[in-house]
Computed example of a mutant assay.
Amino acid sequence: MDFSPLTDALASKSYHRIADICDKLMLQVAYEGISFRDEWPYAIHLLGHIYVDDINSARFLWKMIPFDVKESKPEISAVWKIGQRLWTKDYGGVHEAIREFNWSPECHTVVAAFSELYTKRMFELLVSAYSTISIQDTSLFLGMSEDDAANYAVQQGWTVDAASRMLTVKKQVVAKEQKLDPSKLQRLTEYVFHLEH
């Protein structure tokens, strides 16, 4: 089995491509009738779906993995623990699941990239959902200590009230769609017409 597309994606840190590559390879292997049971990179494949926030496909893949493979390779179960936390929207639990396993070098880079991406996603969620939030809750969502979470938020332009231990969210500036003035469009049309004739 040629895993070079997967190896290349990992080497180039194109983690968003992992799930698609593995899905296509799995279909190819199934079509060719090749047994891949023990050497398939299930942990990486699961991580690929988790990285692109495709938990339904991750659940489906998890159900396909033979029980004895899950039992013999604890890293697969550790990856699925992240998936379970995402499925149940246990935001703090996602970070715990990431931290509590000693990842192989192969998975470590993908898990670290996912952790960073997940923290950004959670921060965007906080920005869209809150105008003020406690430092404690922020640290839970971001998977950081309270001090680190407060510092992270302040770096993003939020303000902190040390007395109440509350953060005031800085809303993102939404670009407004410009309306086209019909008179300007008419003048532009006349100008172009004049240039052409």
Rank of each mutant, 00 (worst) to 15 (best):
D38R: 15
E39Q: 08
E39R: 05
E39L: 06
W40Q: 09
W40R: 07
W40N: 10
P41D: 11
P41R: 05
P41K: 07
Y42G: 09
Y42P: 07
Y42V: 10
A43P: 00
A43R: 01
I44H: 01
I44W: 00
I44R: 01
I44V: 14
H45Y: 10
H45E: 10
L46S: 10
L46F: 09
L46N: 08
L46Q: 05
L46G: 13
L47Y: 03
L47E: 01
L47N: 01
L47K: 04
G48C: 04
H49D: 08
I50E: 02
I50P: 01
V52I: 12
D53K: 10
D54T: 11
D54L: 07
D54N: 14
I55G: 07
I55N: 06
N56T: 14
N56S: 11
S57P: 02
S57W: 00
A58Y: 00
A58Q: 00
R59E: 13
R59G: 13
F60I: 08
F60R: 08
F60W: 11
W62F: 09
W62E: 05
W62H: 06
K63M: 09
K63H: 08
K63G: 06
M64V: 13
I65Q: 03
I65R: 02
I65W: 01
I65M: 03
P66Q: 05
P66I: 00
P66F: 04
P66N: 05
P66D: 05
P66V: 00
F67H: 14
F67Y: 12
F67R: 15
F67S: 12
D68S: 15
D68Q: 15
D68A: 14
V69L: 09
K70D: 08
K70M: 12
K70T: 07
E71P: 01
E71D: 08
E71W: 01
S72F: 02
S72H: 03
S72R: 04
P74T: 14
E75Y: 06
E75I: 04
E75Q: 09
I76H: 01
I76T: 06
S77N: 11
S77H: 03
A78C: 06
A78V: 05
A78G: 03
A78S: 08
V79R: 00
V79W: 00
K81H: 11
K81G: 09
I82R: 01
I82N: 00
G83D: 03
Q84L: 15
Q84G: 11
R85S: 15
R85N: 13
L86G: 04
L86D: 01
L86S: 05
W87F: 13
W87D: 12
T88A: 15
T88D: 14
K89C: 13
D90Q: 11
D90E: 11
Y91N: 10
G92M: 07
G93L: 07
G93F: 04
